[in-house]
Amino acid sequence: MLSIKNLQVSINGKVILKDLNLEVKEGEVHAIMGPNGSGKSTLASVVAGREMFDVDKGEITYRDQNIFEMNPETRAREGIFLGFQYPVEIPGVSIANFMRTAINEKRKHLGLDSLSGAEFLKLMEEKKKLVDIQSKLTNRSVNEGFSGGEKKKNEIFQMALLEPRLAILDETDSGLDIDALKVVANGVNKLRRKDNATVVITHYQRLLEYIIPDFVHVLYDGRIVKSGGKELALELESKGYEWVKKEAGVQAQG
């Protein structure tokens, strides 16, 4: 579904991702872990199409299409969803209005009719139940005055509505208490299907107790330095990132 080959990305001349390779197939859950500043969020942004980065080398294909030929909104309509680390506030725009616009733009792109107000409300109620979100939340303006937990739950709710093929969740667990974390993880697990894929970006192993990944990758200094199964997350937790840094150092010298 997503194939990243030899990707090099920089911002203002500073190289952030180097020679990065990643292969994500349908039905898989990948976890990308790494210390702060290793390039995790950059990777998510580049796949979603944020313009502030320069792609120096390499390629990304999404469902056999060159992703760099698609603008961010097309990528979204084609099924790429980014759960933001810091969701922004859009004052005065209700979540319902925002999401109805988003869904209808996507449907238009796919050649489907727009959802009527009633149809949309019905869909919204369904998804609210699925991800266990309070009904009042959707009447409020997008992220305005939301607590950290509410913002992240709102991201999962949007994901449930948009039913992406590829969801990238950027530090969705950061700043969450254990209950909110469970709600988020639970939402992700319920939305998991054979024909979609999820990439979970996280700093801590904690989230991976609730979302069980098929693959774990360790990103360090712009490279994926180690990949493995879910046990790699545990190993990382017990040995710490210093262990990875050492290994990476050895690799770089060798």
């Binding site: 961010p72 909104e73 859009i90 996507k106 792109h109």
Partner: peptide
């Protein structure tokens, strides 16, 4: 803000 615009774009809403 750029962040607001990108948030919308990422949800499939054009500029």
């Amino acid at each position: 803000s750029e962040d607001q615009l990108f948030y919308c774009l990422q949800r499939g809403i054009d500029m």
